[in-house]
Write a protein that binds this DNA or RNA. Structure first.
Lengths: 148, 148
DNA sequence: CTATATTCTGGACATAGTCAAGAATTGGCT
DNA sequence: AGCCAATTCTTGACTATGTCCAGAATATAG
């Protein structure tokens, strides 16, 4: 560490937190890393990963970290029907494709980085800040199964 | 009302259920009516409405009716983050606009009845049957509040 | 180094929904 | 109309996911 100030300024743990105006704690750093390494993980899975890494963490600290970081835009929360909240560190505009049978979830890019769906016809006076798109279907694996 | 065999064949309770291959029961009819009359209601609200109408119904019967009817396409289930499942009888292609602050939810038509968002760039082998779009933002009422 | 605000811990609690076994109802058949 | 088999409903326990609270620990500013 003689002359490596910061390899990836934007996603580097401490800096990312500070830039978001959050205190830097071991728990938050670990949660952030866990989300980065486990895209689409559930809160409980994050909890397990963090616990494996730093020994222990309370459930509340996990939820708090996930919530505050998603509020600040550091991570993104997705919450499809049929499962708890999931978290990912990709904050760019992309969407998700979910299998109705097995719940598997994959990322899909949204038409070349543009946001074609961000405008609703009639916004009813709402100020829209995000358009979330979820594609529901059947994954390749579940298509082969007899359906029951 | 002297000679009105059925005003709306498609949404008439008994027929709608039969056409979906479901047994016609008082509970299901009441749940169906409750959903029609209370768009975007939660399961528990449906439960209350039904109970007011037919006296009593078990929680399980409500969930069962809602689930089977949404599987059969009689009603549609939507489940935005931060609330339980909501149900509506509009089955056509439309989307939703939700306030992050108060959770209010309104319908938005999807570009003139067409389905412009139904195609993902790369479907990863999935067979897609629905594209769900949720617009997140702040409703007119919450915009005036000081934000706290 | 100290002060103060923020965050974390631990445990109770809340909400939304599922599971399972037996009772009641529906719809087809005679 | 009356009966039978299958479906549906009831009841009550249970699971999963997440929140609330008060006090202990920690981070950051000065």
């Amino acid at each position: 560490m003689t002359s490596t100030p910061r390899s990836t300024p934007d996603t580097d743990g401490p800096d990312a937190l500070r830039q978001a105006g959050l205190q830097v704690t071991a728990q938050r750093l670990a949660v952030h890393r866990a989300v980065q390494k486990n895209p689409h993980a559930l809160a409980e899975e994050i909890s397990d990963v963090v616990r494996a890494e730093i020994g222990s963490i309370s459930r509340q600290a996990v939820y708090d970290a996930l919530n505050v970081m998603s509020e600040k835009g550091l991570i993104r929360r997705i919450q499809p029907a049929g499962s708890g909240a999931r978290f990912e560190d990709r904050v760019d505009n992309h969407h998700h494709l979910i299998c109705r049978d097995c719940g598997s979830l994959v990322d899909v890019d949204c038409a070349k980085g543009k946001a074609p769906c961000l405008k609703a016809d009639n916004n009813h006076g709402y100020v829209i800040d995000e358009a979330e798109v979820v594609y529901w279907g059947t994954c390749p694996n579940c298509q082969t199964k007899p359906k029951k």
